[in-house]
Amino acid sequence: MSTPPSTPRKRPEPVQLVKSRRDAALRALVTGVPYIQFLGIRFDRRGDELTAELPFDEKLIGNPLLPALHGGVTAAFLEVTAIIELSWTLLWEDMESGRIDPATLDPLHLPRLPKTIDFTVDYLRSGLPRDAYARARVNRSGRRYASVHVEAWQDNRARLLAQGTGHFLMPPAGPISARDD
């Protein structure tokens, strides 16, 4: 089984080339953000689908008596997952259409990240001291605003730890450069 080619009429690219390009783009997006590294969040990719993983660590504890994950960690995990998913969908189109070459991407030369306008977290269960996972879905992605929903779970996909919805201000469209504002 291989990843379907982005332009079916052309001769398909070798699968390893496609994979390494997509993995390089994802790596550039994730490893450049210090806070994602601080929390230890990783992203697993299947085609264009991302699953965020938050390996358990003592520093993520919020209630040492239970012990339970810190509510702020859960919120941050959901928000990171939502932003990366939204950025990834934007990057994916540019990458697959050939508008950008992921080989030129590094933390300082990435498409601008969306900015969070608001984020609401619905805490459904106490976070256990073990790994957590999350997936986000972009429900609406307009020119200026986006709405993203995200779900997090631990042992059991059907028993959600928390869910969240965030609204984001989209980065201005344009060529990629190390602009500052």
């Binding site: 450049g32 953000v33 210090p34 806070y35 994602i36 590294q37 601080f38 929390l39 810190h70 509510g71 702020g72 960690v73 919120a75 941050a76 995990f77 928000e79 990171v80 933390p107 300082l108 990240l113 969070t116 984020f119 977290v121 190390a178 602009r179 500052d180 504002d181």
Partner: peptide, 21 residues
């Protein structure tokens, strides 16, 4: 360590959420 955008050095919203929570 809490920076969310390496180009601007702005703290990630998630860290602000943790403080608020």
């Amino acid at each position: 360590r809490l920076v969310g955008d390496p180009r601007t050095g702005v703290i990630h919203g998630g860290a602000v959420s943790a403080l608020m929570d």
